[in-house]
Simulated scan of single mutants.
Amino acid sequence: MNLSKVKDKIKHSPNWKRRIHSLMFSNARPRLWVKWLINPFVFHHGKKAVIRRQTVMNVSPINQFHLGMHSTIEEYTIVDNGVGDVIIGDYTRIGLRCTIIGPVQIGNHVILAQNITISGLNHRYEDPQLPIHQQGVTAASIQIGDDSWIGANSVITAGVNIGKHVVVGAGSVITKDIPDYSIAVGNPARVIKIFDFDQKKWISVK
């Protein structure tokens, strides 16, 4: 039985899932033996990729983590692949104090400014008689296309697809998909400009 089949079997068995989780995690963080003995053999970063010393890497072999070549994760950022893969492309910079919770896929030549939250995780809240933490979670993948720039203090919610060559203004809250070659701002964010290839310039959207 190959590794992917073993992982799939564990994910579909509540008992095995609890046992493996208890073995590998403590208070939602990978245990030290996972970080020191397993992760170095599982996760291989691209050439000249940099993860700053003060970055919090809550990653484990349960899901994928990939950092492309010449990409950087700056200080005090938190990366967590506990509920889904975190894939970061080439020549991408993750700024100071960002939070990235999978499932998330970030393209090549992307710039994330400071204090950005990107979370593919949501808590269920279907029964108001129960505490939220007892109702489980859902996960929906977030994608950010190549050559995009996300402004400081922005929030990107689960399930959102941001296209390529997109600019998101500082402080925006992205709750819906943003198309390629556009500029979006606000809470909730809306597209205010698109690039017109015939006129070769950005034009306002009414």
Rank of each mutant, 00 (worst) to 15 (best):
99 T>M: 13
181 Y>P: 09
177 D>R: 06
95 G>H: 05
78 I>F: 06
81 N>D: 06
102 G>S: 09
106 I>H: 10
64 Q>G: 07
85 D>E: 12
77 T>S: 15
94 I>T: 01
25 F>S: 03
139 A>E: 11
69 M>Q: 14
174 I>H: 02
169 G>K: 01
142 I>P: 01
142 I>N: 00
159 G>N: 08
137 V>F: 09
99 T>R: 13
175 T>K: 05
13 S>C: 07
168 V>K: 01
137 V>Q: 14
107 G>I: 07
189 A>H: 00
147 D>R: 10
68 G>N: 08
185 V>G: 04
141 S>L: 15
195 F>D: 03
143 Q>Y: 12
182 S>N: 04
166 V>R: 03
67 L>N: 00
55 T>C: 13
128 P>D: 06
181 Y>E: 13
108 N>M: 04
70 H>M: 04
130 L>C: 03
110 V>Q: 04
88 I>Q: 02
39 N>P: 06
29 R>T: 08
43 F>A: 00
181 Y>L: 14
23 L>F: 11
99 T>C: 10
195 F>V: 01
78 I>M: 14
45 H>C: 14
133 H>C: 12
125 Y>G: 04
192 I>C: 02
28 A>H: 15
186 G>P: 12
153 N>Y: 13
58 N>V: 02
199 Q>L: 15
156 I>N: 03
101 I>P: 01
171 G>L: 05
23 L>E: 09
47 K>Q: 09
113 A>M: 07
58 N>T: 02
133 H>I: 11
13 S>H: 10
25 F>Q: 11
167 V>K: 01
20 I>L: 15
49 A>T: 10
9 K>N: 07
94 I>S: 01
16 W>D: 10
18 R>V: 02
18 R>L: 13
175 T>G: 03
201 K>H: 02
59 V>N: 02
101 I>T: 12
202 W>Y: 00
6 V>E: 05
199 Q>C: 03
60 S>D: 09
134 Q>F: 11
31 R>I: 02
187 N>C: 09
